[in-house]
């Protein structure tokens, strides 16, 4: 549904007398399948918005090519526009308009005639639970209500692909969960959803596949499960009574332990290929050395672990 090759964009920005070139996106190859929710994950300034704006025909790439919903981005941007929807990171409502007016006009911009546009607006308002406020000026809406209007505007014409740039940033946990439901519903209606986010849990819960972007490049790409497996099979947390350093020394030399870290609470984090195989070994080593075991836990690595291994930084700190 979306195929890109070597998409590039750099910005020239002036700071005082010097012109600096920011390479915002440096060669992005993507392949998004029809009907999936594809997540674009990365810290501030990674180049997510720039990539999306290129795909939505808003800025011209410096290089590379893309085909979106069967239309060529460079040769036929007009056709791309007809087939996609785009919801900007910064919102798009006009304070003095009502949601219904905005929706009707937006539909009519796509060539839909008036009666049909009105009908679609009513349906969209209903689907996004906006009917109650539909005829109030948008400046009276809450952040979450505004965000829902933005998304309703992006899909009013029934696009094949919709790009959502951080649809949940700034929403409370409940509105966020609501938004996830809406996004899944769009997918169930047959739309391909391309979504950017800072939130690992969001990517984890919502996306069929994700790409992690950092400094304008895609560092890794795949299903969430595959990516986690790739990092290290499993993570075993071991809590010992007082003998943390000794346990670390003992376990570090075991060949099934890929990496070992000490947590803040002095428990140990062991990255191993296969938890079920490693645990009996760990138990035996500690028992032989007379180290008393307090607790032991086995869990799959989180997306944060993936990000950490791929970029050397934690997403939370960047």
């Amino acid at each position: 549904m979306i195929e890109t090759k070597g998409l590039r964009k750099s910005y020239r920005s002036r700071a005082g007398r010097e012109t600096k070139v920011v390479e915002a996106v440096r060669g992005v190859d993507l392949s998004v399948k029809e009907g999936e929710i594809y997540g674009f994950l990365g810290p501030n300034g990674a180049g997510k918005t720039t990539t999306l704006r290129m795909l939505a025909t808003l800025i011209t790439p410096d290089g590379g090519e893309a085909v979106i919903a069967g239309a060529d981005l460079l040769k036929n941007p007009g056709e791309v526009r007809r087939r996609i929807g785009y919801v900007a990171q910064g919102g798009s409502t006009w304070d003095e308009s009502t949601a219904r007016e905005e929706l009707v006009l937006q539909a009519r911009f796509y060539g839909i005639h008036k009666a049909e546009a009105l009908q679609r607006a009513t349906k969209a308002l209903d689907a996004f639970q906006l009917t109650e406020y539909a005829d109030r000026k948008t400046k009276t809406y809450s952040g979450g209500q505004r965000r829902r209007v933005d998304i309703a505007l992006g899909i009013i014409h029934g696009p094949k692909v919709v790009f959502l740039d951080e649809p949940t940033t700034g929403l409370d946990p409940q509105s966020r969960a609501h938004m996830w439901v809406e996004v899944r519903r769009l997918r169930d209606e047959g739309m391909t959803v391309f979504i950017t986010t800072h939130y690992l849990d969001e990517a984890d819960a919502l996306c069929d596949r994700i790409a992690i972007m950092d400094h304008g490049e895609i560092v890794t790409e795949g299903t969430v499960d595959d990516l986690k497996r790739e990092v290290a099979g499993d993570v075993v947390t071991v809590g010992v009574n007082g003998a943390g350093t000794k346990a670390t020394e003992l376990l570090r030399t075991q060949e099934y332990v890929r990496k070992i870290e000490e947590n803040d609470d002095h428990s140990l984090r062991l990255y191993v290929d296969e938890g079920a195989v490693a645990i009996p070994h760990i138990l035996r080593v500690l028992d032989t050395a007379g180290v008393e075991l307090k607790q032991m836990e086995l869990h799959r690595p989180s997306l944060d672990d993936v990000f950490l291994t791929k970029t050397g930084r934690s997403l939370r700190e960047s």
């Binding site: 996609i84 937006q106 911009f109």
Partner: peptide
């Protein structure tokens, strides 16, 4: 003001 509110950008992604 319309540019800042994102209204123009929203118009631009349509075929208008």
């Amino acid at each position: 003001a319309e540019l800042r509110a994102g209204v123009i950008e929203r118009s631009r992604v349509t075929p208008v």
